[in-house]
């Protein structure tokens, strides 16, 4: 029954449950799934066996007039049988499992795409080493390409992810693409390599309890064609075009004036090189804001700037600008918030 229900869930899940572990879209997730199904089938067999014998015994040996219990004390042969039978079952699931564990230690391919993801309370910083702009201090070397809360992956290429944390332990997990691995401060962990096999935006979420807003530490993995991926990577290191509207231009000024730049970087925008918060380059192109918690709409972004504590209680560092006292120079009126939102959302690929 358990097995059947799980299979049923799997069938239902792909479209209505974007975070399902049962709709694999990478080679590694696929092989985990195969093992998972094997284990479920074996467990179901054991369950049916035990429950069957139990149900039969309860019925057949129920007390009724004249029934006398047989005074058996045990049976050595039976004890041996029911030790060996489970051994057989464990071999069936254990052997492939241990082989898979051994295989997980394989070094990444030469041409695997290396991504380094850094956990922060409560958002993900995403770095593509060696893919960013040239290092001004180190000509010939390239800096990492940096973004946040969205991991772009080219389809069909092996992905090799290293994981770090700057504060507490987090865990990096994209159920449809790869199982989780913890992000541990002071250590660089490696995620098992995987190759995405389908284009789409997949849900990811922090899986290790990491404090107040742990529930709202999410992200998206965007799998796209190599062309799209390259275009995106290129755009991330191109200075943004001038704001398209007056409103957005006003927003750009405010972005500097209100001190957003102290914490946020926008590539190519003078003065915007803060590191405390997520990189906001090309924010208009992102699917979500607030570390994957709401869709990237004008309304949501304004709400975020106005009162993010209400959207994501506990958020560190960033003030809820709309709720600051009016005399505070950082306070922002609704009009100002609208302008900043227009500016940020105006930064898109086109």
């Amino acid at each position: 029954m358990a097995g059947l229900l799980l299979l049923l869930a799997a069938a239902l899940s792909a479209c209505t449950n974007p975070q399902t572990t049962f709709s694999p879209k990478s080679d590694t997730a696929q092989s985990i799934q195969t093992l998972y199904l094997l284990v479920i089938v074996m467990a179901s067999i054991v369950m049916v066996g035990v429950f069957g014998v139990l149900g039969f015994a309860l019925f057949r040996f129920r007390d009724r007039p004249g029934r006398v219990a047989s005074q058996t004390h045990g049976n050595t042969k039976l004890e041996i049988i029911w030790t060996l039978l489970p051994v057989a079952i464990l071999v069936i699931i254990g052997a492939p499992a241990l082989i898979a564990v051994a295989g997980s230690a394989k070094a990444p391919d030469e041409d695997a795409l290396h991504i380094n993801v850094v956990g922060h309370q409560w958002w993900f910083e995403v770095q593509y080493p060696g893919m960013g702009p040239e290092d001004p201090n180190n000509p010939g070397e390239r800096l990492p390409l940096i973004t946040a809360n969205e991991v772009h992956l080219p389809i069909g290429r092996q992905i090799y992810v290293t994981l770090e944390s700057v504060d507490v332990i987090h865990s990096f997990w994209i159920p449809q693409l790869i199982g989780k691995t913890d992000m541990i401060p002071g250590t660089v962990n490696e995620l098992q390599t995987f190759t995405p096999q389908e284009v789409g935006a997949f849900y990811g979420q922090c899986a290790e309890f990491c404090g107040t807003a742990h529930a709202q530490m999410r992200f998206r993995a965007v799998v796209e064609s190599l062309g799209d991926f390259n275009e995106w990577a290129e755009a991330l290191q191109t200075a943004p075009a001038d704001p398209a509207s007056e409103l957005a231009a006003a927003g750009q000024t405010l972005f500097l004036a209100k001190g957003c730049v102290a914490c946020h970087t926008i590539y190519g925008m003078p003065g915007a090189a803060g590191k405390l918060g997520p990189d906001l380059t090309l924010l208009g192109d992102r699917r979500t804001i607030g570390a994957g918690i709401v869709d990237n709409t004008d309304e949501n972004l304004q709400q975020w700037i106005r009162d993010l504590q209400q959207m994501k209680p506990g958020t560190l560092h960033m003030p809820s600008f709309g709720t600051l006292p009016v005399e505070n120079p950082q306070h922002m009126s609704d009009a100002e918030i609208r302008a900043v939102s227009a500016f940020l959302r105006g930064m898109t690929l086109e």
Binding site: A2, T21, S31, I32, L35, Y36, V39, I40, A43, V46, M47, L90, I93, G94, A97, A100, V101, S104, S171, P175, I178, G179, K180, T181, Q192, A207, E208, F209
Partner: peptide, 17 residues
């Protein structure tokens, strides 16, 4: 039985937490 499932490391990477 579900305990045996998470003894299988690759499966556990999907089940853990």
């Amino acid at each position: 039985l579900s305990g045996v499932m998470h003894a299988i490391v690759p499966v556990d990477t999907q089940q853990q937490d």
